[in-house]
């Protein structure tokens, strides 16, 4: 492998690995706070699936612990969507719906290819189907629920909408049909929202920064605080094991 293709593969593994790692950490923040015990267990299990993906992807890019615990904010390549705070339960579910639908489409394509991500994608796509199903069922239940749950679900889908455009920007080394993915994503998410008596939000699907945002290392305000908490233990006790 030439240096440049190897660098491309490393950057691609970082982008996909950071998505999984950061969302895993956000979902883990629900532990002890979820509305019901079953849901706490469900979110923790989804987080664990994502952490497994992150470990494999980051190991393709270097040392998993160093990459997770010792990089600065600007070195992370995750989508801004996954770093958004949990908000209320509807915000977490909207984030899950948007991301798991995207990840399922992404992994389906990667699994059919012959690239370095095919083995992981083929394995993880079946797990992600359960994540998407979980998000879909909750979107239906909240959207088509009480006036309050409907309103909260509507607010959440709209608040996170502007972070969805970034998912379909090309990432070098991740060889997929982004336009095809975007069309399939809009159809799938649109169908769930309609059945949940909601609608696809209007307005721009990206912020003012059009060139990639999180993929360029530009993150939103709350991400720094999340990283501080995630990295604190490792940085305070380097090399500690149990």
């Amino acid at each position: 492998m030439t240096a440049s293709t190897s660098e491309t593969a490393t950057a691609a593994a970082l982008a996909l690995g950071d998505d999984a790692l950061v969302l895993s950490h956000r979902l883990g923040e629900w532990a002890g706070h979820a509305p019901v015990l079953e849901e706490e267990v469900a979110l923790a299990n989804i987080a664990l699936d994502l952490l497994g993906q992150a470990r494999i992807l980051l190991s393709m890019a270097g040392d998993e612990d160093e990459l997770a615990y010792l990089r600065e904010e600007r070195a992370f390549r995750n989508l801004q969507l996954v770093e958004q705070p949990n908000g209320d339960f509807a915000h977490t579910i909207a984030r899950q719906l948007y991301f798991s639908t995207y990840q399922r489409l992404l992994y389906t394509q990667l699994a059919e290819g012959t690239g370095p991500f095919a083995p992981l994608a083929a394995k993880a796509v079946k797990e992600v189907e359960y994540h998407q199903d979980h998000a879909e069922q909750w979107t239906l239940r909240l959207g088509d629920g009480t006036d309050l749950s409907h309103e909260r679900m509507r607010r959440a889908t709209e608040a996170l909408w502007r972070f969805t455009g970034e998912m379909f920007q090309p990432v070098e080394g991740v060889d997929v049909d982004r336009e095809g993915m975007r069309a399939a994503w809009l159809e799938s998410v649109g169908d769930v929202l309609r059945r949940a008596t909601l609608a696809l939000p209007e307005g721009p699907a990206s912020g003012a920064w059009r060139a990639g945002a999180g993929r360029q290392g530009l993150h939103t305000e709350s991400f720094g605080r999340m990283l501080a908490e995630m990295q604190h233990l490792h940085r305070s006790h380097p090399g500690a094991t149990w």
């Binding site: 079953e38 849901e39 267990v41 469900a42 923790a44 299990n45 989804i46 699936d49 199903d133 069922q137």
Partner: peptide, 9 residues
Amino acid sequence: LLSRFSSTA
């Protein structure tokens, strides 16, 4: 079904 995820994933 009570929950899609139980004691383990």
